[in-house]
């Protein structure tokens, strides 16, 4: 069982590289979001037999909300990155229009809750999984209120949120953790707390 790594609390102001890293992640994932919109729309007929199952696709939309805080470890990193990624996908042309930005903000906030609960000192697997799940719950809550208000609670709303939370925990939570681990040897994280423990060459 991997333990939560403790890192010094993110102090003071954001460095330029923190801002840029979050922003660039947001741009990259904005494109992914935009592409994922098509997957989401395209899979509709396939999942028509059980629409709540669509929640399972949700995790991909939440990766920035977990990945960015895991890398830069600053208060608000998830919020900034997720909202910005949503904005980029809106810039590229999203079917959800401006609403996707509100939703991005909400998703980012959901993720922040998990990191805030660890007082921005815990960035282990458990925190990442919780952040992914919470971000997904926030997102799908917005969905059921705004897009699916008339659906039945037990036949649609609850399973939809549950599938999404699962997807968020696995794809966004564990996935981000795995991404960070894979990035360590590439040296791109050397300037971040996450990359500090790497062996010297």
């Amino acid at each position: 069982m991997p333990t939560d790594s403790t890192a010094p609390a993110a102090p003071g102001r954001w460095r330029t590289v923190d801002i840029l890293t979050c922003a660039v992640l947001a741009v990259a994932f904005g494109v992914v979001f935009w592409a994922w919109n098509f997957v989401w729309a395209g899979l509709d007929p396939v999942l028509a037999f059980l629409p709540p199952l669509k929640g399972i696709l949700y995790g991909v939309w939440l990766i920035p909300a977990v990945l960015a805080p895991l890398i830069v470890r600053r208060v608000g990193a998830g919020l900034l990155t997720e909202a910005l990624a949503a904005t980029v996908s809106a810039l590229l042309g999203s079917v959800w229009g401006v609403l996707v930005i509100y939703q991005g903000l909400l998703q980012g906030l959901g993720g922040e809750i998990a990191f805030a609960a660890g007082r921005y000192r815990r960035f282990g697997t458990a925190t990442a999984v919780a952040a992914g799940a919470l971000a997904c719950v926030a997102a799908t809550l917005f969905d059921v209120v705004v897009w699916y208000p008339d659906t039945a609670l037990w036949a649609f709303k609850i399973p939809y949120i549950a599938f999404a939370a699962l997807s968020g925990a696995i794809v966004a939570g564990l996935g981000s953790k795995a991404l960070v681990a894979a990035m360590l040897p590439t040296g791109v994280l050397d300037r971040f707390p996450a990359g500090r423990e790497r062996a010297r060459i």
């Binding site: 040296g187 050397d190 300037r191 010297r200 060459i201």
Partner: peptide, 9 residues
């Protein structure tokens, strides 16, 4: 002055 890049020995 001396400088060691992070990640380098």
């Amino acid at each position: 002055y001396a400088w060691r890049h992070a990640g380098r020995r």
